[in-house]
Design a protein around this nucleic acid. Structure first.
Lengths: 386, 386
DNA sequence: TCGGTTCGTATGCGAGTCTCACAAACTATC
DNA sequence: GATAGTTTGTGAGACTCGCATACGAACCGA
């Protein structure tokens, strides 16, 4: 139930969410956007300024009619550091992220090929401790993004398809015990979606899908400004939705999964079949460059574009989200590829009153995911329902 | 922002939602489930009892330790009547539904084959006026469920695939102007999902999909106890998600849409191809009966089962919902068919920490949809976010 | 210098929930 | 049959928070 004190908490969360959705804002603007008053906003932000979460930026210039200059509020780059971790089959990345999204003290650590569960755990905790030491400040929490299926309630990695050594690892507990800082676990693509919502191309958008296309395909969904999680963190396995019932067998055992058609391996295979030079190591950006002067490469690229758009169009049909943010390989492929995917997705989905499907490119590196991992902590610690 | 008065409204909504999710409840139980106190619950429900929305049922027996008997609260069957309407290509159904879900004064009206937009409008408004007259009471609003794509903000039918005569019709406005009662419009499968949530198999569930399988395929999604709508009411077109990239051409122009494989027409075609008797008019229940003594019919049924499960498994993979409620043809097909779909869906989707996929049968008639249409009104009028 | 304008804050009010206390109604026991 | 124990439902006061209002602070242009 929402008592007066809970109402205060909800309103504080609303203010913070409004800041994340719009960037630095002065008090009167916050009041306007939240439908509140300057007095109430002042009452809310004063303790946050005292705590060091927020700070006042340089005063804006007054308008032509004069008046006291407004001082925009934004998250302090000094206070409120949060740990962020991305655990993938090949290794772990750690960083410290401030509430404003500044990423510092990034470290990377690779897993050897023959590593066992103990070795993985040791490398993960060591990397985090090193990052904490480099940051030199106490963290408010650690957010962990994992490539694979997770149990968000238990904080356990259920199944990391490409790294079975992680299966069943209670990673949140392990990290929390080792560092003494509360840890929160979620799927990497869901963290990525949070990163887009707070600090990326999804800022200010109410609903979108954040899609990763690389060695595998995954997605996180933002509906009405909040992250969608299935039961105990299920869902988001869009790469293993069947789009070609009689297609090739996937490593998951089913036939015609989307990622069998549109992942990096499929690209290599198509390039090799077309006899393109260096097919086995060709990346999407390279294919785009090659396609401008090689018709065979152009056909491979067109096919891949269609296959990416096919899955996007399916999501559009089912969910009705209007925006898709592509991370991974497409992020480095440039504007022509983005436009081609967008056109193909529009052709494959119905026209909606919500307007045509938009496709934008995200980041090729993992910064969105690291920021999203940090956002897992911000969500819990600040009681904001992202 | 949530002021004290808005907090009161939210808490009132929370109490009503708790009632819908649990059925009749006495005040102490409501307090327990909402984390509130008996005093606060009393303060909230007293005006609702005075308004005639709620009423006190017969006192329960005291416990073994004695004590004053508790009187459960539930929605009055006399007060708060709401209009419900289901507009389909072949005709319109209207009814009056109470806040407790009792459906009365049902009427049906078919559209002639050569009807024009004016004729459709006239038949719809006439049916509603007749139902209102039969009910003999003033309605608090009218909920309209339409088979087709709608613009929920504008209250306009965007595209009714099987009934182009409805395209572009501002149905909410038309009905509101004709009856003088506020009207709310949404897609039929979304209304169906609301009906399941409040009065059907989805009661008390936080997330599920309500799927209709018949001449077409559609679905409505409940996430965290609330209906999912895409941008301006987009989405839910699960029947036109591609599951067989190189499959047969659908009437929408794409290839291999789910509903090309698993709708009623596909069933007839498969039955005809197998040489089953009466294939052109065979319904699913009939096929189930036939399959028990005819191996060829068994193979047709098995194929259809797999095709239905294929789309369900895809939804499970993407969304992570754990429960699927099947309406339309499967609703009348009986337990063996339900179990077969469930098994097939489980085999086609990953195992999740949220537990195995459950499939249950809904109603073959349209009562869930009519109740859901009424719930559109209840949601607005009672300020409850379903 | 002064009026106009905007920003930020202090003050009283109102609405709602929570805590506490008490009457009402029922059961079991002496 | 009287009484203690238990549970339900309600009333009074405390508390918290947002809101309306008013006022000082800071800036512009004349």
């Amino acid at each position: 139930m929402v008592s007066a004190s809970l109402a205060g908490e909800l309103n504080r969360a609303r203010v913070l969410k409004t800041l994340y959705a719009n960037g630095p804002l002065p008090r009167p603007e916050l009041a306007r956007l939240t439908g509140s008053t300057r007095a109430t906003i002042g009452q809310i932000v004063t303790p946050l300024l005292d705590d060091g979460l927020l700070e006042e930026l340089e005063p804006l210039a007054s308008g032509v009619q004069g008046g006291k200059p407004a001082r925009p509020l934004w998250f302090s780059d000094n206070g409120w550091p949060v740990g962020a971790m991305l655990v993938l089959p090949q290794g772990v990345k750690t960083a410290v992220v401030t509430a404003g999204g500044r990423v510092t003290a990034v470290t990377s650590s690779s897993f050897p090929a023959d590593v066992d569960a103990d070795g993985v755990t040791r490398r993960i905790t060591t990397a985090m401790r090193r990052t904490m030491a480099r940051a030199g400040v106490a963290l408010h929490g650690i957010g962990i993004a994992v490539g694979g299926m997770v149990d968000t309630e238990a904080g356990v990695v259920v199944r990391a398809g490409l790294a079975p050594v992680l299966d069943g690892l209670p990673l949140a507990q392990v990290v929390q015990a080792d560092t003494g800082v509360p840890a929160h676990l979620d799927q990497d693509t869901r963290a990525q979606a949070l990163g887009d919502l707070l600090f990326g191309a999804g800022r200010g958008e109410s609903s979108f899908a954040s899609v990763y296309v690389g060695a595998g395909i995954g997605a996180g969904f933002i509906f009405d400004g909040a992250l969608h999680r299935g039961a105990r963190g299920a869902g988001g396995e869009v790469g293993h939705a069947v789009v070609d019932r009689d297609g090739p067998v996937c490593r998951c055992g089913r036939r015609g999964c989307w990622e069998m058609l549109a992942n990096r391996h499929a690209l290599h295979a198509a390039a090799a079949a077309a006899g393109l030079p260096g097919a086995a190591t060709l990346d999407l950006a390279g294919l785009v460059a090659l396609a401008s002067r090689d018709a065979a490469a152009g056909r491979v690229l067109a096919g891949y574009t269609e296959d990416v758009a096919l899955g996007i169009a399916n999501l559009q049909q089912v969910l009705g989200v209007g925006l898709f943010i592509l991370h991974g390989d497409p992020a480095g492929a440039g504007e022509p590829f983005r436009a081609a995917v967008e056109v193909a997705a529009r052709e494959r989905a119905f026209a909606h009153p919500g307007g045509p499907t938009r496709v934008v490119l995200g980041t090729a590196d993992d910064v969105a995911t690291l920021r999203g991992a940090a956002a897992l902590v911000l969500s819990k610690a600040l009681h904001v329902a992202f």
